[in-house]
Nucleic acid binder design. Structure first.
Length: 590
RNA sequence: GCGGGCAUAGUGAAGUGGUAUCACUAUGGCCUUCCAAGCCAUCAGCCCGGGUUCGAAUCCCGGUGCCCGCACCA
């Protein structure tokens, strides 16, 4: 059982307090992990970085919606019907199959209605489908929905689900958000949150979780404006590693060309791919181990019409999706508008309101009222819906109300031409969705940051593994380790005041005076602390180094001596630089 | 869900029916003037349940979890 990088990373993560398997004292549960103190800090730092990218830089607004969600939402979104796999098991050997795949494989022409289990049972009988494995008889088809169900309120008042994605909350709030953004497109909204998927067999550790953290952005835009991005010009020259669906081959192309050649469907998708690349690199992923793979038509989610996954290369799992950038078109808003009967449209304003003259069928309600009593309102509405061109003037007209045909006499309506001012035309915005899997990104960051050397002890000659996490300073849970060189003669006291000053300045630190300084460096290297500060006798003395400390860089082990008064500012400057990979690990001047 | 393997301290390992060992880590102390030094002490463990036996970490049965395949994976 050669320990691969996953094992090694996980071992450090567990031992040092990044990650713990959840519910461990009760035997654990696959697909759930706890974030320990360092993991929670790392997660918070990644979230903060996401805010920096999407809220500060892109101007998105952050909202936060519940995880527990009424069933109607997921009926409208398609998840109840489609976030499910129709399963059928062999009654003999127990082998499980996708029922619809079996039926299609048996020569059935046409669409299998995956929502109708009895229809599928019938089809299985008709086509004499047996177990592919042992030839045994198949049991009944059942739905394996991957959402966690629950009830809202005591008893079974109202069915609900834990959300499988945070996006729906944003879509549902669209009318509010549209007003918040003063009825102007495009705008973006982000949400951090947990999502839940009751995976059948989550056996890939941090990669496939049943409860996981997402950072999702929904960018609403007007499709008539070509799905562009105001800053697209800044990224046209960027070259990203792309794996288009047409070839399946990795190519490196300028984004401007990729859009021009139709490889990437629109500017907005391409822009967010570039942004995502920068984000992943800032979190500490190895730029050489990132690529963008386009979904094949067959693997696209039910709501998407184009989707590029950012994938990272894992030593154990191969290429793993960690961000999905999808063009969801108008799918979600249209679905919710239809299901809720709310208006989810936006208005494309004309420069000047237009005078439009329109011919309409105008109901004369004072005639319809006495004539149709309770149904008068419905009749009036039905009349107004009619196309004036189909109505013969001065004649009775028949309308259909609740399946009943009613004849309206000529005096019940009037055909007239009205002049209206139209401010614009309404349309359903399209959505570009960059959706980030936080847990996977965090794991990727750890795996790509992990480094070990075999150190040979000079005295004993024994080999020892030296582990180091080269996390970017920006995301490292602890920024500075603070040590007295040795534990005596006032060094610890002085070091503690340095530690305290740094923390008061908003810099997370770890004070350590145990063992030798080398051991303390090792401990901090292992959790990715970028800087360690040591207080020595020169600090206390009256010489030229009075009130100066040494700062040691994790990756180069180089040291620099700084006045203690400048320390907090120096560290903060290094942390601010951490937006790009090249600058996150600055060498310290010797 | 199916088949196979595994389960001993925080970590890694030893332990073929008779007092559970060892290393590392951690904690306290001594020592220590910059990269896992040394010394002393301390904490902490047989996955769960049942069976066989005078006696089970060890043998048997069942369960759970993890790993590897198959299947599944918007």
């Amino acid at each position: 059982m050669a320990a691969d990088v996953y094992d090694k990373v996980f071992q450090v993560a567990k031992r040092r307090g990044f990650l713990y398997p959840s519910f461990e004292i009760y035997g654990g549960a696959a697909g759930f992990y706890d974030y320990g103190p360092l993991g929670a800090a790392l997660k918070a730092n990644i979230e903060e970085l996401f805010r920096e990218f999407y809220v500060t830089r892109e101007g998105c607004a952050e909202i936060s919606c519940p995880s527990v969600t009424p069933e109607e939402v997921f009926i409208a979104s398609g998840h109840v019907a489609q976030f499910t796999d129709p399963m059928v098991k062999c009654s003999q050997c127990g082998e499980g199959f996708r029922a619809d795949h079996l039926i299609e494989g048996a020569g059935f022409e046409g669409n299998v209605d995956v929502s109708d289990t009895t229809a599928m049972d019938t089809l299985i009988l008709e086509h004499k489908v047996n177990c592919l494995h042992c030839g045994g008889r198949l049991a009944e088809v059942y739905h394996q929905n991957l959402m966690f169900g629950t009830e809202i309120g005591p008893g079974t008042r109202r069915k609900g689900y834990l959300r499988p994605e945070t996006a729906q909350g944003i879509f549902i709030d669209f009318p509010h958000l549209y007003r918040y953004f003063r009825e102007k497109l495009p705008f973006g909204v982000i949400q951090f949150g947990r999502g839940y998927r009751n995976e059948i067999s989550p056996r890939q550790g941090m990669i496939r979780l049943r409860e996981f953290n997402m950072m999702e952005a929904e960018i609403f835009l007007d499709p008539a404006e070509g799905k562009g991005h105001p800053d697209f010009a800044e990224v046209t020259g960027r070259v990203l590693p792309l794996v288009p669906k047409t070839t399946g081959e990795r190519t490196e192309v300028r984004l401007g060309d990729a859009v021009k050649d139709g490889v990437v469907r629109n500017e907005a998708l391409a822009y967010y791919m570039a942004l995502t690349y920068d984000f992943l690199v800032s979190v500490g992923l190895d730029p050489e181990k990132i690529r963008f793979r386009q979904h094949l038509d067959t693997e696209m989610a039910h709501y998407a019409n184009d989707c590029w996954d950012a994938e990272f290369l894992s030593a154990r799992f191969g290429w793993v999706e960690c961000v999905g950038i999808a063009d969801r078109s108008a799918y979600d808003l249209t679905s919710h508008a239809k299901a809720s009967k709310e208006n989810m449209d936006a208005l494309r304003r004309y420069d000047e309101p237009k005078e439009v003259s329109r011919t309409i069928v105008f109901p004369i309600t004072k005639v319809l009222g006495p004539l149709f009593k309770g149904k008068a309102k419905a009749v009036a509405d039905a009349l107004a819906e009619l196309d004036p061109g189909t109505v013969t003037p001065e004649a009775a007209v028949t309308v259909s109300v609740d399946g009943e045909h009613l004849e309206v006499p000529p005096e019940g309506y009037e055909i007239k031409t009205v002049n209206e001012k139209v401010a614009g035309e309404s349309f359903t915005p399209h959505v570009i969705e960059p959706s980030y899997g936080l847990d996977r990104i965090l794991y990727a960051g750890l795996e790509h940051a992990y480094e070990e050397d075999e150190a040979v002890d000079e005295e004993s000659g024994e080999k020892e593994v030296y582990r180091r996490l080269r996390l970017p300073a920006r995301v490292a849970p602890i920024k500075v380790g603070v040590f007295p060189l040795i534990s005596k003669e006032g060094l610890p006291e002085y070091a503690q005041t340095v530690d305290r000053r740094l923390r008061r300045a908003g810099i997370p630190t770890f004070y350590d005076d145990s063992g030798t300084v080398g051991r303390r460096y090792a401990r901090q290297d292992e959790i990715g602390t970028p800087f360690c500060v040591t207080i020595d006798f020169d600090t206390l003395g009256d010489g030229e180094h009075k009130d100066t400390v040494t700062v040691r860089d994790r990756d180069t082990r180089r040291q620099v001596r700084l006045p203690v008064n400048e320390l907090a500012g120096w560290v903060r400057a290094k942390l601010r630089l951490a937006g790009k990979h090249e600058t996150v690990m600055p060498a310290i001047d010797a």
